[in-house]
Design a protein around this nucleic acid. Structure first.
Lengths: 336, 336
DNA sequence: CGATCCCATGGAATCGATTCCACGAAGATG
DNA sequence: CATCTTCGTGGAATCGATTCCATGGGATCG
């Protein structure tokens, strides 16, 4: 390990040109001769030169880093989203700083502050809450930002979201068609736009379809599996329990399934179950799960595309992707 | 949006001190008076000052960024690992650059080069392959590095791995006890240390236990679910098919399960199945899945702990975590 | 053939923090 | 009361790239 780090000066010296020329060659500036291009490239590879990204960013005010703020990569939905976004970013020459907010406001703000300090070129966020001062700082500084999956009321940045109303309406109508009238809803946290929108859509659809609007049929979870278990337990303990359950995301659905299994309640027979988000293995369950699916891959790619547009100075329109009910065996009629 | 960015000079001016003093206060240098501390902190908050991480890193040669190189976050094992590592790093004041290598050598090298350029303070990698020149560059430069889950032969860096031999031996003995003698093995890619070690352990255990060592009973997959499906198909098409399957990771197990389901083969009755890695919902399947489990959370945390030790100049011992068979219903005896 | 333009180039300033060094004031010691 | 520390401070150098600006040589044009 040679203690001295190789800098662009070393490369320039070896190539017999000035640092300015070496820099031009290495950063693709066209104002260079073929001769110096060859010499510099050879020298750089000879010295195994890796330009210092900090120095470069300091002067040029571009970092080629984007910040990706999610709730939790352990949720398959976000894992897919993270993978799609990261791969799309990489293809455009960006690397990804990952932040898991864990549905926690403080951690979200901590990451947003870090993104500001890191001077990331842009941020893709699945935000939560309302009055985040860090989010406001980010926008005040003009850091290019797009929302993905979720939005924040009153903050106008381009977003890629899912139209959950459509899938939820289909689900409600499907359940009604199967003879269900009391449907338990395991809601997401009302601090997220998706949590709110899905609950609103469900309530509206339930009312229109003539399902019971008993408020006890709604349980407020937090998008994590433990709350799905708790929700299922509470709903089943009602004097007049539901005959069907709809969970607002897949971890809560998993939690609910675990509860049902452990109570010996047969899914699709004693209890219909529908989950939001289609996860690969949901179709492998004893009773394949009926789901409201959306295209996560497309969402991840679209968010990067939008962000690049914003970075480039554009003002792209927000994108709303469709959701759709996929009927499998878990949503059969009530047991008689 | 004021066009001028606020720098530490602005903070210093507002606080009535020099930039040097402001810097000392903001970076926690104890050589500061209470008075200037208060004034600087107040000024910084008043101006919503976020120090430029690039400038700081350039001078101080510390970035407070670590690079995390994984195969694919969509694999729940790596998602759990990423989450644990990222949270542990955050608690120590580090943010995480995420790289998905996708079991692809070029992409791995691309990320390692990026990590070098970004001058990350350390790298946690689940590597693959052998003669990666980028990996060699990383180590030649003395970038603190630890391996997690996987290692590279001939490269001596601290690592956190799983002793898969133990769990595999238990699985083989368990299957033998259930009367199985032909066990199909869906192996991981032999370009990874885990792929090799698990195959070696399985072969050794199978031989010792007296199971069939027919080479056709081994299918070489790539740790992705499609190869699990293909593997199950090929193994079942043998003239003398196995009565049990062991998959070297969870996505391949999922693929195999999908194939078995679609062929109408009943898991735990017509075919025993055991998977490596315990995923939350494996116990929710029609036939809860017998697995070889390991503590991913602990692995993630340990890798950060080791890395911090290396960054601090230590030479920590590698850690090997145990694996253990968890018997559920999917591994019953062969059907008669 | 002289004036003009273009293009590759090098020198030097610059980005925004940290840190070395020197300095003066205050407190400790004999 | 003189000397020696200790401590907080500011000025200036520094990290390693990019980029502005000036320059000289060759091609182009009238």
């Amino acid at each position: 390990m040679t203690s001295a780090v190789t800098t662009i000066k070393d490369v320039a010296a070896l190539a017999g040109v000035s640092p300015a020329t070496a820099s031009r060659v290495l950063s693709g500036n066209p104002a260079t001769s073929k001769e110096s291009r060859e010499r510099v490239v050879a020298a750089a590879s000879e010295l195994d030169f890796h330009p210092n990204a900090q120095a470069r960013a300091l002067r040029s005010t571009r970092t080629n880093v984007i910040g990706l703020l999610l709730s939790d990569v352990r949720n398959p939905f976000f894992a897919d989203l993270a993978h799609a976004a990261e791969q799309a970013a990489l293809a455009e020459g960006f690397v990804t700083l990952l932040g898991n907010a864990n549905e926690n406001m403080e951690q979200q703000d901590r990451y947003l502050d870090t993104f500001i300090s890191q001077r990331v070129d842009g941020v893709i966020a699945a935000p939560q809450g309302e009055g985040s001062s860090s989010l406001q700082s980010l926008l005040d500084r003009g850091v290019p930002t797009v929302f993905v999956d979720r939005t924040v009321d009153g903050i106008n940045v381009p977003s890629v979201t899912t139209d959950s109303a459509r899938g939820i309406r289909q689900a409600v109508e499907h359940l009604l068609g199967q003879g269900h009238t009391r449907v338990g809803y395991i809601a997401g946290p009302q601090t997220t736009s998706t949590g709110r929108e899905r609950l609103r859509s469900f309530s509206a659809a339930a009312q229109e379809a003539g399902l019971s609007t008993d408020p006890d049929l709604t349980y407020f979870g937090d998008f994590r599996s433990a709350s799905g278990s708790a929700g299922a337990q509470q709903l089943l303990a009602l004097p007049e329990p539901p005959t069907a359950l709809l969970a607002a995301d897949s971890p809560m659905a998993v939690g609910a399934l675990a509860t049902l299994n452990s109570m010996g309640i047969r899914i699709g027979q004693d209890m219909a179950v529908i989950a939001f988000d289609d996860i690969e293995w949901f179709s492998l369950l004893e009773t394949p799960l009926t789901v409201i699916s959306n295209d996560v891959e497309a969402m991840g790619r679209a968010s990067v595309r939008l962000l690049l547009d914003v970075i480039g100075g554009g003002r792209p329109e927000s994108i709303v992707l469709p959701s759709e009910l996929i009927v499998r065996a878990s949503s059969a009629g009530p047991h008689h």
